[in-house]
Simulated assay, not measured.
Amino acid sequence: MDIGFVGVGVQGAPMVERILGAGFPTTVWARREASTRPFAGRARIAAGAAELGASCDVVGVCVWDDDDVREVVAGRDGLLDGVRPGTVIAVHSTTSPELCRELGAAALDRGCTVVDAPVSGGAERARLGTLVVMVGGDDESVARCRPVFETFGSTIVSTGPLGSGQTVKLINNALFAAQLSLAVDAFRLAEEAGIGKATLGECLSEGSGSSRALRFHAQRVLVEDGPFAPSPIFRKDVELCAGLPGFAGSALLAAARRPL
């Protein structure tokens, strides 16, 4: 099985390393040529997305946002301009569920399919092969992709129809953001009470109030000792949650937006 991968940045590059390490023949392409240089001699470097699509059975896409995914999949000289029938395109980027369904419909016209397969865990867990992969799509396409997903993911969950993987990922990200906002408050309250950051971090990290968000924030405040500054991707993912059914006006969305 020939594998393609579009987008080899902070998240995508270690995923490709795992795919290569498993022995899959792999072709990569990125809009920034410099991103593909570390793979020279180990993977085929495509000249564009359409060329990559013409030579691969499963193609992973790991770029920034909805517009970028739409461009590399369905834009001019995108994957769908070159893809061969039977190919499965796996969207690993965090996007709106609607986009994946839109691309799925366009792909069917070319005789191929789309699955949404966003990942959770970050670059370090990608390097370790322990990402969580949330996969939405038809059973046959998901099964075809599974051996590839198993190279970088230790938890692979079929979530339902196309778009459902993105829904689960966005709920996950909203919950993390909400927990992070509470962690920020917890450290503020401790400081006002005269309790040291290190003391609070040690207690909460092993206490019943612990969470991954709490441990993340504890490490950040103890090492960086600065105000929380959400990244653009953090903001992007939280705002995508606003489009999910039932999220508008929900306590979860309100809490998730607090650090923004």
Results as ranks from 00 to 15, higher is better:
M1E: 11
M1A: 10
M1V: 08
D2I: 10
D2N: 13
D2Q: 10
G4R: 03
G7Y: 02
V8M: 12
M15N: 06
V16G: 02
I19P: 00
I19E: 01
I19W: 01
P25Y: 02
V28S: 04
V28T: 08
T36P: 00
R37Y: 13
F39H: 02
A40S: 10
A40G: 07
R42G: 07
A43R: 00
A43T: 00
R44A: 08
R44H: 08
A46H: 03
A47F: 06
A47I: 03
A49N: 08
L52Q: 00
G53S: 11
A54K: 12
V59N: 01
C62V: 14
V63T: 00
V63P: 00
D65N: 15
D66A: 09
D68H: 15
R70H: 11
R70I: 04
G75I: 15
G82Y: 09
V83C: 12
V83T: 10
T87H: 02
I89L: 15
S96E: 02
P97W: 05
P97D: 12
E98N: 04
L99Y: 12
L99C: 08
L103G: 01
G104M: 06
A105L: 13
A105P: 05
A106T: 12
A107Q: 10
L108Q: 12
G111C: 06
C112K: 01
T113V: 08
V114L: 14
D116I: 05
A117D: 02
V119G: 02
V119W: 00
A123T: 04
E124I: 06
R125D: 11
L128Y: 04
T130K: 15
V132N: 09
V135C: 13
D138A: 10
D139H: 12
S141R: 02
S141D: 11
V142E: 03
F149I: 06
F149S: 01
E150G: 03
F152K: 02
F152E: 02
P161Q: 15
S164N: 09
Q166S: 13
V168E: 01
K169L: 13
I171L: 14
Q179T: 07
L180Q: 00
L180V: 03
L182P: 01
A186D: 11
A190T: 14
E192F: 07
E192A: 15
E192W: 05
A193I: 04
A193Y: 04
G194Q: 11
G194W: 06
I195M: 10
A198W: 12
L200V: 13
G201Q: 04
G201T: 06
G201A: 13
E202G: 11
C203N: 10
G207S: 08
G207F: 00
G209M: 05
G209F: 00
G209C: 08
S210P: 14
S211A: 05
A213H: 06
A213F: 08
R215G: 02
R215N: 11
F216D: 06
F216Y: 12
H217M: 09
A218D: 01
Q219M: 07
R220L: 14
L222H: 05
V223W: 13
D225E: 15
G226L: 09
P227L: 03
P227R: 02
F228C: 03
I233C: 05
R235S: 09
V238I: 15
E239R: 14
L240W: 07
L240K: 08
L244V: 05
F247E: 09
G249N: 10
S250W: 06
A251Y: 09
A251C: 05
L252C: 09
A254Y: 07
R257S: 07
P259Q: 05
